[in-house]
């Protein structure tokens, strides 16, 4: 809810191309370009298959808008919006 007011998590990526996983709408696909956040968080995501260049699809949002359901490497995974915001993606059409 208050995600809008908080400054976004800083990533290395250039500002003009700044698309995050949390920006994708249900049904949209992206390719991971960078994962920010704490070491533990990044490593956990990579171990779950969210490696750089991995394709990721937003399936839907939970009834209360958070968390979101993703499809990655053929399985379903759920992440909170605040964590998905730490993942930079490029849109795949």
């Amino acid at each position: 809810m208050f995600n809008f007011k908080r400054p976004r998590h800083k990533l290395h990526i250039s500002d003009e191309n700044d698309l995050r996983l949390s920006d994708l709408k249900p049904g949209e696909k992206g390719r991971i370009t960078e994962i920010g956040g704490s070491e533990n968080f990044r490593h956990r995501l990579i171990e779950m298959g969210l490696t750089r260049d991995a394709e990721i699809c937003v399936d839907k949002y939970a009834p209360l808008r958070d968390p979101m359901e993703l499809i990655v490497k053929g399985y379903h995974l759920s992440l909170r919006g605040m964590d998905a915001e730490k993942i930079a993606v490029e849109r795949i059409v």
Binding site: N40, R44, M48, H76, L77, L79, R80, D83
Partner: peptide, 10 residues
């Protein structure tokens, strides 16, 4: 606390 990374199994 740990980040919320939850698998939704079939």
């Amino acid at each position: 606390s740990k980040p919320f990374v939850l698998e939704l199994p079939p």
